[in-house]
Amino acid sequence: MPVRRGHVAPQNTFLDTIIRKFEGQSRKFIIANARVENCAVIYCNDGFCELCGYSRAEVMQRPCTCDFLHGPRTQRRAAAQIAQALLGAEERKVEIAFYRKDGSCFLCLVDVVPVKNEDGAVIMFILNFEVVMEKDMVGSPAHDTNHRGPPTSWLAPGRAKTFRLKLPALLALTARESSVRSGGAGGAGAPGAVVVDVDLTPAAPSSESLALDEVTAMDNHVAGLGPAEERRALVGPGSPPRSAPGQLPSPRAHSLNPDASGSSCSLARTRSRESCASVRRASSADDIEAMRAGVLPPPPRHASTGAMHPLRSGLLNSTSDSDLVRYRTISKIPQITLNFVDLKGDPFLASPTSDREIIAPKIKERTHNVTEKVTQVLSLGADVLPEYKLQAPRIHRWTILHYSPFKAVWDWLILLLVIYTAVFTPYSAAFLLKETEEGPPATECGYACQPLAVVDLIVDIMFIVDILINFRTTYVNANEEVVSHPGRIAVHYFKGWFLIDMVAAIPFDLLI
């Protein structure tokens, strides 16, 4: 008679799926529990143990900040960024110097990925580790590398530091407007667009060049630039800015003055950032001319202004700041037409079709709590990747769950009947059967004279019903998954307890 339990259901295979997918890609990662103190490590794979030199037993239950890997060259700011990422709910990448158990130093890129439950609360953290440099290539500990984003994938490793954006290309926007319009339909740009040429040739750093990471940081200074100062900065030398009595002219307006920039070969870094931020506020060169004239017309309804409409929906549905990093990277690809469009465009503009998908598509409701890094690593669709929660398995109709209350009560009843059979069957065979043979035949009273025979008949009927119930009862397979398919249940029961239950259900007393 089957006594099969499996009270692990309803099970959740999400954690096993993450481990299996990460292991298949030869990654070095740990999984931490966000619900406990210090976000203790609950799993670390073999790749991480080989990377740091510690065994799994030495890593388990330690804080996922990996303070046991810190050393003299470990930056405090990087460690603080990892700790801050564990307090938030967004994906974050941090470069930090770690030390192995043998004392060797290596520069590592740590990717902190939160995993949320159905309520939107962070319950786990996945920390992925990628070695960037070994100890002989690690720089000085005073050099802070965590304020910069990861290198873009479309640049060669040897040319990542030679990417320079020439400031004269930004200063000569109005001069290039006529050349853009003359391109017409034969050019790649839309009317009114501004073409910015980027020099990728390796050259020595000069005062006129600005690194790509500095251009990325310009967006942080746009908020500090007032509207009046932006307007004066875009007017140009024809209309000098008016300053109040006793007030000095704005240095932001002076930063885009061609006369002032041409007199000296070098520009201050602050002026460069502010000038680029001011130019980015204009949607095209037409807006710059309109600002000089004193009238700013409404933005025209053409394809170039609607190019950012799908980007707005993608940004609203993005799951991490990696989408913004990807957008900034692609927006700086050289030799393309940049349409400086305000994100607050007309909502009635139709979304044009684009061959290049900048932001990841909208994630469906079932995966809105899973970050983009987890979705990318697992390579699963929205119909396959579940949320991290207890999910009731989908069972067929008329199927009994093996952990249901009805099955528990039924098993206790069958257990009592088995005990009765084990006690009274030998007793009936030894004593009652002998008395029946010696006594007179009682054929007239039937079952009324033999109450134990009636009980034995009921017990046999219950055993037959138990066999039928076992054909529709779920079970737990070797992978700790609840199986509810009727065919698989029948095959599993035939290979197991079916023969024993059938022999126990045969009414031998009635056959004798």
Rank of each mutant, 00 (worst) to 15 (best):
A268S: 08
S261Q: 06
M60F: 08
E130S: 06
V384S: 04
A268C: 05
P245N: 15
G381H: 15
F125A: 10
A160P: 13
G53A: 01
N369E: 06
L171G: 14
L171D: 13
R328I: 04
A260K: 07
R271W: 15
N45G: 03
G262D: 10
C265F: 07
V112E: 01
E177S: 14
E91H: 11
S283C: 07
M137S: 14
F129N: 01
K101L: 01
D67S: 09
L171I: 05
V341K: 15
H254R: 05
K364G: 14
G47R: 08
T329D: 11
D321F: 04
A307F: 13
I19G: 01
T152D: 05
M218A: 15
S178L: 04
T371Q: 07
R269M: 12
A268W: 12
A204E: 03
L51C: 03
A57Y: 07
F68M: 01
F340S: 15
F163M: 15
S26M: 07
L324W: 08
R252S: 14
Y54E: 01
V8L: 07
D197P: 05
P299D: 05
P347L: 05
C105Q: 15
R273T: 13
R56N: 01
S55E: 06
R281Y: 15
C105M: 15
S379C: 05
S351E: 14
I363H: 15
G139C: 10
R292H: 14
T216H: 06
R35L: 06
L69Q: 01
C64P: 14
N317L: 08
Q84G: 09
V36R: 07
F106Y: 03
A121M: 04
P298L: 07
F29D: 01
G183L: 09
L109D: 11
A160H: 05
G88W: 13
T329F: 03
A228E: 05
A83H: 04
S178V: 06
I96Q: 06
G246F: 07
N38W: 01
A40W: 05
Q335T: 11
P2K: 06
A32D: 01
L225F: 04
G192M: 03
L343A: 11
L170V: 05
N33L: 06
S318E: 13
T65M: 06
T152F: 09
S261Y: 09
E230N: 05
A185Y: 09
S313I: 07
M124R: 03
I126V: 12
T371L: 10
K101G: 01
V215H: 05
D355K: 14
N257F: 14
Q61K: 07
V8P: 07
G71D: 01
G262S: 15
E372C: 07
K135Q: 07
I123A: 15
C44H: 01
E130L: 03
C44W: 01
F22I: 06
V115I: 11
R176K: 06
G294K: 12
N117Y: 15
D287K: 13
M218T: 04
R159L: 14
S26N: 10
S320R: 08
E177Y: 06
L171Y: 10
G236W: 05
T319N: 09
P227Y: 08
S153N: 08
E58F: 06
D355Y: 07
L170K: 11
R271A: 12
N45Q: 01
Q61V: 03
R76A: 14
H70L: 03
L200W: 06
S255A: 07
E134G: 14
A142G: 11
F125D: 01
P258E: 11
I336K: 14
K161R: 12
I363P: 13
A293H: 07
F129R: 01
S182M: 07
P386K: 03
A228I: 07
P157K: 15
M291H: 15
S275Y: 08
K101I: 01
E134S: 11
T305Y: 05
V215T: 09
K21S: 13
G192S: 05
Y54T: 01
D323W: 07
E372N: 14
H143D: 08
L51R: 01
V94D: 01
A9V: 12
P141T: 06
L107M: 07
V8M: 15
F125W: 10
L338H: 15
E274T: 14
I123L: 13
S275A: 07
R271S: 10
Q11S: 10
R242L: 12
A89K: 13
L170D: 14
K116D: 06
E274G: 08
V215G: 12
R35A: 06
M133Y: 07
E365Y: 11
L212C: 06
P300R: 08
S313N: 10
G187T: 11
M308I: 12
H302D: 11
A350C: 08
S275C: 12
V295L: 15
S243Q: 07
V41I: 13
R164S: 12
A32Y: 01
P310C: 05
S261K: 04
G187L: 06
Q61H: 09
R73L: 09
L109N: 15
E289M: 14
R159P: 06
V377W: 04
K101S: 04
V195Y: 05
V341N: 07
F98V: 01
